[in-house]
Design a protein around this nucleic acid. Sequence first.
RNA 1: GCGCCCGUAGCUCAGCUGGAUAGAGCGUUUGCCUACGAAGCAAAAGGUCGCACGUUCGAGUCGUGCCGGGCGCACCA
Length: 664
Amino acid sequence: MTVQEAVREHLRAAIRDCYQIDLPELGVEVPPRTELGDLAFPVAFELGKRLKLSTGQKHNPRDIATRLAQSLQEISGVERVEIAGAGYLNVFLDRAEYLATAMKHATPSPQFEGKVIVEHTSVNPNKAMHIGHLRNAVLGDTTVRLLRAAGETVEVQNYIDNTGVQVADVVVGFKYLEKKMLDEITSIDDRFDYYCWDLYARVGAFYEEDPFNLELRTRTLHEIEQGTGETYEMSDYVSTRILKCHLATMQRLDIEYDVLPRESDVLHLDIWQRAFALLKERGAIEYATEGRLKGCWVMRAEDQRDADGDTEHEADKVIVRSNGIVTYTGKDIAFHLWKLGQLGVDFYYKPFYVYPDDRVVWVTTSNPDENDEAHAPFGNGAAYFNVIDIGQSYPQHYVKLGVMAADRDDRVARSAHLAYEKVVLSASAAEELGQRVSEEDRKRGSVAMSGRKGLGVKVDDLIDQLQLGALREVTARHSDMDDAQQRETARRIAIAALRYFLLKYTRTSIISFDFKEALALKGETGPYIQYSVTRVNSIFRKLLAAGVQPDAVMSASGGAVKKERLRELLTGEVGDDLWSLIYLATRLPDTVRGAVSSLEPAILAKWTFQLAQKFSLFYDNDRYHILSETDPDRRALLITITAIVRQQLLAALEILGIEAPERM
RNA sequence: GCGCCCGUAGCUCAGCUGGAUAGAGCGUUUGCCUACGAAGCAAAAGGUCGCACGUUCGAGUCGUGCCGGGCGCACCA
């Protein structure tokens, strides 16, 4: 049990004893300033309120806090307790004791009973990925890393809509604008995703100049549905080749997947038929015999029914159209029932791509002969998280309702749509891309990206630019590094800049993309955090050269330096200063927990930057100069603090998907 | 009309389930490389937290109503 948990338990018991009240969720905070303590319980306010309600008597929060404080004096690890402000119960930890145990990291216990499925990226396989798609992928990948850091088992899915309108549109472009057949498409040597990016924009213009041209889309979609023939072959080729481009782009950012479920296989394997039967059996959907939805299978939304008993079911969702064709929402409900193992059917799987670390990405197939028995079991998760933009909230809501109607248990309730806002272009960014900005957009300050117009920032272009900028800095500073080393360093810096840029915004905030900000390597950026690590590395290199093993000092300082001496060093103004850095650095597990429970990676990103910033303060302070410190105990303490900071920064960066270079 | 998101410093954004003196980066101004790497640090300036009521001992945070911006609300995907 941690000190925090022990304090909480004692406090809860004390509240029961003194006031006969049981508070299962005791709020605990970290005071705004070190002088105020390490743990703050505002519980006296809450109790005062409750006591007034039940007894009618007023109770001063300070008195309540004072009474409760006595029960906390004896806990080992607690130095003292103070009452502050209007009735805060502030706990000061035994700093020396805390430091000695800080190095032992407890393995987190998972919250889910089984595998959690995270679906992210899911970009239409018809053109190059842009920065908006990347926000999805980075949020998703970081969520995966967060869940794993929290002890969960995670399966990463990237859903491939290979039969949709978007792929069909590119096929229309090849067939009718470029008059290319399959063999001509396969012989395109250019970057295929970039090629299709431009072609897709041309198709957009083609539809716009004459709406009659949309007929070609309908015809093409129909041909693709056949599952055979030249047009189908073309669409299959396009989507598969683009998918490989996407995987390659994502690999540059260390984003990997376990399995790629394809829309075409969902259709071919009659996943829907199974789900349809299940939904009917559970009464989740019903056949409308009257009203405007007559002839459809609909999902009733009872919570939306009018108070007046109005018969109009505005929020009813059509699952099967009156012509017998299932809607997108219906298909998605089916797919999610599969995710939770509710259908009793499965896809077949074959290897699609092998990562450099020998991990295999599997792709679904409908052909039993292609099935490779070596695949891991997919689906059948304990919960799902879908990283999908906020615009899809409405259908996602119905997907969840549908899945819950068929399978009402809390594993579904805990599943969630991880909604995030879009990325738009700042007016200046749009201009830099050669777009004419309308007066209206200029006033608003932003322009929406549009694949149909070919307007957007491609991920690979952005990474290239970042790497170039980083390489310039690296070569200017480290002429001693060889080329490969310089490039690898620049690569890590570029990834850090890009991933941090996308993670520092909370999910619900629209990112206004600006080249200057996205390409920045200083300020609140990923490289700033990496830089803190390299500064530590530099100190440690010098220590090693002098025969001092920093890690050994760290693990020993709990025991080798006497507790009393440690306490002395961590007391007073200077002690407070050092302690606040230690305390912040060791709160990574709390931060991870917070980020996971709110599914908000920005919380971790901000914390990591904050720690790097606080370390810079420490680093720059002449009082904490490690190499010139003559007092051996004090030096051991400074080394220990530095080592803890480094360790925690590296751990946090790994969760953020960022590697720190040795030097930069 | 209904629903969701946003409105905090000149700009871009944090502010955890209400809590102690509202923070960061960028930009501006001024300093600091003969003590660990200046991709850094210090200092200054910059705020009616959109507005108004309400709940509370306490509101940037919760409720209601406005104002302003964005997005959803298909037998599209």
